[in-house]
Every structure is written in structure tokens, then in C-alpha cells.
Simulated scan of single mutants.
Amino acid sequence: MTQFVLAGVLGLLFAFGTFLVLRRDIVRVVWGVTIISQAANVYLVTMGGLAGSVPILGHGPPDNPATITDPLVQALVLTAIVISFGTTAFALVLTYRIHEEHGTIDLRELGETGGEH
């Protein structure tokens, strides 16, 4: 049952992120990319295993490795979250600079001017 709930939530996150990426506002596009990347992180964590014991000697039954949670996935997702935060901050600063230079953050208006200001 929880697998279906997680699949539904992940589907909604990916759909909402895609909806935002297809908007005309640059800020919404940046947030859409951020939501999609976080949904991918949640997907990776759920595929790595949610329930289980930590892989430290003396914990968990050694005869059943299926009950051990893989720590590598969690470390990679933590790294991805930090990189995503930095990338999002950089994209928002670039959006601010575009607004300062062109006076708009509408992608159609920016496309019509051809980058001129």
C-alpha cells in the first residue's frame, strides 16, 4: 500500500515540476527544475530502502541482508541536495540580473528582443 502512495506522490511532484518548467516566468521555471530534482532525490531514497537497520557490525540479522538500508544512496542524495541548493541560488541570481538588464522575466518577451537591451 505504501508503495502506491509513494508512487502517486512522486508522480504528482514530477507532474507539478513539469508544469512549472513549461511556464513563461523564469522564476517558475527555476522552481520547476528544483522540484523535479527533489522528486528524483525522493525516488532514489525510496529505492534505496526506507525500513531497515543500519549497516554497522552487530546490528541486524547477518543472515538477511535485505533488512539493511544502503547508506550510499543516502550520502549521494545528501550531496545532490547541497548541489541543487547552490544551483538554485545561482539560477535565481541570474534571474535577478536578467530582470535588471531587460526589465522582464517573461521568456516570450526575452525571446522577441533577441537578447538586446
Results as ranks from 00 to 15, higher is better:
V82A: 13
G32H: 02
N64E: 04
G86F: 09
P71I: 02
A15I: 08
I26P: 01
G8E: 07
M1S: 14
G114H: 08
T113V: 11
G17V: 05
A40N: 02
E101P: 00
Q74E: 01
Q3L: 12
G49I: 08
A40C: 10
A75S: 11
L10C: 13
E100T: 08
V93F: 14
G58W: 05
T46Y: 12
E100A: 11
L110H: 05
L72Y: 06
Q38Y: 15
A80V: 09
L6P: 00
L76V: 14
G11Y: 05
I56T: 08
Q74P: 00
L110N: 05
V42E: 01
M47I: 03
F14R: 01
R28M: 10
G8N: 05
I68A: 09
A80G: 12
A15R: 02
L10A: 10
A39R: 03
D25N: 15
T113K: 13
L94W: 06
W31G: 00
I26E: 00
F85Q: 07
E116N: 11
L50M: 10
V45S: 10
S84N: 14
S37Q: 14
A89L: 15
T104N: 09
T88Y: 02
G58F: 08
T88S: 10
G86T: 05
T88C: 07
P65H: 00
R97V: 13
D25P: 02
P62Q: 01
G60N: 04
L10K: 03
T87K: 03
E101N: 09
G32A: 07
V45H: 06
R24F: 03
F19T: 05
L94D: 03
E109G: 06
P61E: 07
L50A: 07
E101Q: 12
L6A: 14
Y43L: 13
F16I: 13
I36T: 12
G48M: 04
V45L: 15
Q38R: 04
T87I: 12
L78M: 12
L57R: 01
L57S: 13
L6W: 09
M1F: 11
L57C: 00
T67D: 10
V73M: 01
F90C: 10
F85W: 07
P55E: 06
G111L: 13
V73N: 00
N41L: 03
V29Q: 14
I56R: 02
L107F: 10
D25H: 12
R108K: 14
G48L: 05
H102C: 02
A7E: 11
E112H: 14
